[in-house]
Simulated assay, not measured.
Amino acid sequence: MKEKVWVIDNEILNGINFFNGFTIVEQNILEKIFKNAYFIDRDLAETDESKKQIIPYVVIKDEKNKILVVQRTKNQTEKRLHNLYSVGIGGHVNPIDENENPELTFYNGLNRELNEELFIDKLKSLEYVGLILDDSTEVSRVHLGVLFIANVTNADIREKENFNELWLNEMEFKNFNGNFEGWSKIALRALEVI
């Protein structure tokens, strides 16, 4: 069976005043996006630039104020992101996440993705930050990131074969020479880490 993913038509987004990069939008705008989202085959969504796949994108911060950084290995499915570094954990919202309340559909997807990718000792808080929209690459043109910060006591990657992990503080980010994927650069600027 083909994977289905949650998407929003760009024409819905055209009525929203946000910029290419990072934008803070009100809760009612998020609700409008979620209310107008629907599922289509991922194969279609990956090449249809009239739609954006809605992706929960969560930055994980521990008690020492360090941020989890992962590097995608060649075992990871999205070939266009191999070897790049990321500060975002997340992924597609799928039909298994569906609820009659569209907002819960989104949060079910966010929760499922976090639990698939991480062992989290204790999630202390989950804070909405804003939206990531980046039209600069083939991958990012068909995705819309919903950025959050999760404060945890500790976390560890589940899929060691798909990701290498490290934890960096603000000073270490300034000296880090790894190549971050586009959304991570946007997220780190929005969080004023770089």
Rank of each mutant, 00 (worst) to 15 (best):
E46S: 07
Q76E: 11
L110P: 10
I89Y: 08
L68D: 01
K2S: 13
R80Y: 07
L126D: 07
T47Y: 03
A190H: 03
R80H: 08
L68H: 05
E63F: 02
Q71Y: 02
F173E: 04
V93F: 07
Y128L: 01
L131T: 13
W183D: 07
S136W: 04
E3F: 10
F39M: 11
N162R: 14
Q71F: 02
E31N: 12
T153Y: 03
V146G: 11
L166N: 08
V152T: 11
N154V: 03
N94K: 15
L168H: 04
F22V: 12
I132E: 00
N101F: 00
N83D: 15
V58K: 04
T77Y: 14
E170H: 12
A37N: 08
W6S: 13
G91S: 08
T137E: 11
K2M: 04
I29E: 10
E161D: 15
R72S: 03
E170M: 02
W167N: 05
N65H: 13
Y85S: 15
K74F: 00
E181C: 03
N179S: 06
L81N: 02
V58G: 10
V25L: 09
I120V: 14
I149F: 06
N65R: 12
V70A: 14
S86F: 06
G145L: 01
E181V: 01
E127T: 15
E117P: 14
